[in-house]
Design a protein around this nucleic acid. Structure first.
Lengths: 338, 338
DNA sequence: GCGCGGCTCTATAACGTTATACAGGCGATG
DNA sequence: CATCGCCTGTATAACGTTATAGAGCCGCGC
């Protein structure tokens, strides 16, 4: 049997309202009564009906984290952090998979899901500034990753241009001159790819190296297979690069695979760098040099800002936070050991 | 502004009940009225308040999938499938992370979370038959993976013993004689490890090979690092195995890494087989031979059975389904190409 | 001695739905 | 022509909770 406030009230011989006050302390209750009520709660094993509470309060205690792919370890690792942070704040985090689909992102942005969640953390891929501005829903929204700037929402990301700089500087520092980039995109979507390409170009220029469009490979998506295909295409071109910078670790790992299959040595023939620092890169052969964003910071910050907004803290304007990152050298650029 | 049934009713000049009937078709509505109501809905952009609906119907439309680790690609891949299957049936799937923690599993089993979800799909790791039997909550429960048998709940898994057989037979067929197992456990928890070890022993016996306890390595968890450490320990033992069967792909990938660091060639010196067929194993160097469970089938079946129970289909008794699996040969046991 | 404020507690009206009971109209049936 | 049943639609009571208004009681100050 499922116990409600009424059962407790009956058992303890008090009114509904008093039990409610004992449970959530909205108004003070006398010590004797409180004990009687508490005892009844313990005996009957009451736990509040969240649906009813939601109906009354207008909040569900649910927030969502929407990512383009659950199977990308970067997002899985981020999700684990966010889930535990949300739990600590009394919220339940719901994972949404947009599958990098524009309609899915739009639906989430102001769709019906909003009726059940108190707020949304979104990693946009296919939508841009206009779509976000056109949003009608009024529940709080926090953006993570890149793609959308200058909108009235909190935004947490790393500085992609700077991250690219760091990667390219590292490759230049170990003597590479023909540096390719894998993971550019066609359209204006996925801005982070643009930013990473931009950082790549700037850093090349800063190092006095020429920008060769042929060395920038486009991909449809950003998985291992995309990286592998792009690397294969680059190799087929004839003028082999001596280094590759991948849009993310998955793309870089795909590139590693293509290089191995083509019989090229990493890092001797071609050095490889990714972004994300997923665990897989610490176990690949060779291990993968990467730009490590502070996932813990990103996950915690995103949840905390969202919850702050939900709970009404009129935090000053929208806030864009750039979290730190770090270059981690591993075998794919010549570091020794694991 | 947030529109409710009342607003629609007013606009269309009908009663609340009629609008409700248009929305969810509980009772038929005349064609003319239906059109007027539908128009009002479209114009005002109504979407039902799920909290209220939950309160009234006693169902939330939320189901949960609880896994021991989100960052295990096997579960991430399974989750993607389950999420889309659930969406197709009109349910939202909530991911829960038990972090392989006993208390977390227990809390989920009959804890307060039950008040917000209609049913639970659980991949148990630390709890067994007794705990499941002692459960008080009465919402439907579907178990996936191994660990708990003979309980009155639906259960979907592969035949672990048979899977182990297939793996060992394969290793024997390519001439291996000293076959190690990585991923045994200490206690009675994580039954699947027991079953996989059991299959390993049986298959050794069937092949006329001796069972050497020293070649069975225990691990605390089942990640890459655990596999790497265990492999390192096995190598330190002196009598090097000529093949390794890992509890799962992650463990096997960790083993690959340890072998590479120790300078052993795979598969020439040591062949390696895992279980799960995660994408990572198709890109590792060497690519990983694995036992591939039918993740699509498992995910879809789990969701469908759970929903069937929720919706009251008194399906005959509890059902244990064993889904098919398949051996996929790759480089780590001598197959050529990707 | 009376009024007034503070302290507990209670009664009750929402929140937005859905299911039940009921009412009116109209054609078919006896 | 009266009656029955079907078909549409309505009014309304829940579901379990929380917030608001208010009731009873006690002690204190004038």
């Amino acid at each position: 049997m499922v116990v409600s406030l009424k059962d407790i009230a009956q058992r303890a011989g008090v009114s509904l309202a008093t039990v409610s006050n004992v449970v959530n302390g909205y108004r003070p209750v006398g010590e004797r009564t409180r004990q009687r009520v508490q005892q009844a709660i313990d005996e009957l094993g009451y736990s509040p009906n969240l649906g009813a509470r939601h109906l009354r309060r207008g909040r569900t205690g649910l927030i969502a984290l929407a990512v383009p792919e659950l199977t990308n370890p970067y997002f899985a690792e981020l999700a684990e952090i966010a889930i535990s942070e949300a739990a600590g704040l009394g919220y339940t985090l719901l994972m949404e998979n947009t599958a990098a689909d524009r309609d899915a992102e739009l639906a989430l942005l102001d769709g019906s899901r909003q009726r059940v969640i108190d707020g949304l953390i979104l990693s946009p891929v296919r939508i841009g500034r206009e779509e976000v501005l056109a949003r009608t829903a009024d529940s709080p929204l926090v953006l993570i990753g890149e793609g959308v700037y200058d909108v009235p929402h909190d935004h947490i990301a790393i500085d992609n241009v700077a991250a690219s700089h760091a990667a390219i500087r590292h490759l230049v520092s170990i003597g590479r001159r023909r540096i390719a980039f894998i993971g550019a995109t066609q359209g204006g979507d996925r801005q982070s790819a643009h930013l990473r390409v931009q950082g790549y170009r700037e850093a090349l220029a800063a190092a006095g190296l020429p920008y060769r469009p042929r060395l920038v490979a486009r991909t449809d998506a950003f998985g291992r297979l995309d990286g592998k295909r792009a690397m294969r295409d680059l190799l087929a071109l004839g003028d082999r690069p001596d280094a590759v910078f991948g849009y993310n670790d998955l793309v870089a790992i795909g590139a590693l695979r293509a290089l191995a299959e083509a019989g090229h040595r990493v890092p001797e023939d071609v050095a490889v760098v990714g972004i994300d620092d997923i665990e897989e890169g610490r176990f690949s052969a060779p291990t993968l040099t990467t730009i490590a964003p502070d996932k813990r910071e990103i996950g915690r910050l995103a949840v905390r800002r969202l919850v702050a907004r939900i709970e009404g803290a009129e935090v000053a304007g929208s806030l864009t936070v750039q979290t730190p990152f770090q270059l981690i050298r591993r075998e794919s650029t010549g570091a020794r050991g694991g």
